[in-house]
């Protein structure tokens, strides 16, 4: 069984080494591919010097475009499972087995949730509200309970890779991808995982900013539900 770990990275020169070390030490059975999303801080150089495969995008596509590049890579090279793992050090390689477990048991896509088992994940109040609003809306649309729709810690089986190889949303990809997956009748599972708190720098989003962000994402969700079905055979 071939497993690919997709690490989207944009200006993560400081963190990428730790991420790669963590993956090598604690998840050695996955092949790592770094998707360097047009960084201008030597992210690619650091990763290459560690001997990791790096795909350099010519300019910044955003997280959606970067993740999709990784999925395309996995699809071309015939991987059975692709794991999405952030390049900023937020995710923990030891937790990958937990999301993989669901794929082994037949899910097409599995998501690591910070909130499923009231794990102590401190978050600014406004973001917590936003996060639970998204979860509520998405749960309603997909008729399945989701607790952490913005989590970028995910695993994709063959069917999900085939779907997202064709179409992967761009603006708020984590949330929107759930709707795309639901519309395509993929089997989605959430599992509780631990994540690291962001170490450097507080989130710069202000209260007003997060309200604006929330409205934008909600709009994107509703537009997403309007789109035609994505059918894969």
């Amino acid at each position: 069984m071939k497993i690919l770990v997709i690490v989207p990275a944009y200006n993560e020169a400081e963190n990428i080494q730790n991420v790669i070390m963590d993956l090598r030490d604690n998840f050695p059975l996955g092949d790592i591919v770094i998707i360097n999303d047009g960084s201008h801080d030597g992210t690619s150089h650091v990763a290459r010097s560690l001997g990791v495969r790096v795909i350099d995008l010519p300019h910044n596509l955003g997280i959606g475009g970067a993740v999709q590049t990784g999925i395309k890579y996995g699809y071309i090279h015939n991987y059975d499972i692709a794991v999405q793992f952030d390049g900023d050090g937020q995710h923990i390689a030891n937790e990958i087995e937990k999301i993989l477990e669901q794929i082994h048991q037949g899910a097409d896509m599995s998501i690591g949730s910070r909130f499923l088992n009231a794990t102590a994940y401190a978050m600014p109040f406004t973001r917590k509200i936003g996060s639970s609003v998204f979860s509520g809306v998405i749960s309603l649309i997909c008729r399945q309970k989701f607790t952490d729709t913005t989590s970028g810690f995910r695993a994709y089986g063959k069917k999900a890779m085939e779907l997202f190889n064709d179409y992967y949303p761009e603006d708020y990809p984590e949330v929107e991808a759930l709707i795309v997956a639901y519309k395509s009748k993929l089997k989605i599972k959430e599992v509780p995982v631990c994540m690291r708190q962001r170490e450097k720098g507080e989130s710069s989003i202000t209260a007003l900013g997060s309200v604006y962000y929330m409205i934008k994402v909600l709009l994107a969700i509703f537009v997403g539900t309007l789109k035609r079905r994505f059918i894969i055979t």
Binding site: I35, P58, T69, Y73
Partner: peptide, 13 residues
Amino acid sequence: NKKMAQELGLMKD
């Protein structure tokens, strides 16, 4: 443009 950038990245690899 996105597709082109992705293809370019994959082909360079």
